[in-house]
Amino acid sequence: MPTKSPKSEPGLSTPPPNHEALEAEVLVRDNISWMLALAQRILRDQALAEDAVQNAFIAGLRGLPTFEGRSSVKTWLHRITVNECLMKLRKQKQLNEKPIDEYLPEFDRHNCRIEAPWPVLSRAEDFLESERTRALVAEKISVLPGTYRIVLQLRDIEGYSTDEVAELLEISPGNVKVRLHRARAALKKLLEPVLRGEVHR
């Protein structure tokens, strides 16, 4: 007489519990380093990042039995980690709407751009050589409201498409594009003293 327990359904092998535990441990060991790095990039805080990764694994391991290779395990864990990080940012009210108008480009009443002349620009590599410049850039980025920084981070750094970022942040793709452009425009303004060499490298 067949039992009703799904565990003994014909055709489904039931791995012994220690096999499952071993599988979980392998998954954690294989992925924890890059997941911590990812969470750290988004949250900029070691303790918060560890917490997010722990939650991501718990959610991930719970979903593992139903995970049927819709995407690679890595892609799947990546998304869970990002979602856990976003939850943390939301809890800290870091994704609330904040104006950045003061950093946006300016135009005169004839719709012409107001832009002081630029000297010849150095290459990015030249700026990045200096630890001090890197620290300055990081400092300026932190001035960006979280709602703009996160779009920049997800699309420009983590490699998500506009549509994927829209889904993750629960906003429209058009809104993602507007925020991304504003974030970059504001950064350009914030980094001007560095780019113009007015700050010692």
Partner: peptide, 9 residues
């Protein structure tokens, strides 16, 4: 500036 922020972020 986008390039720099990507490198730093």
């Amino acid at each position: 500036s986008s390039e720099l922020s990507c490198a730093v972020l």
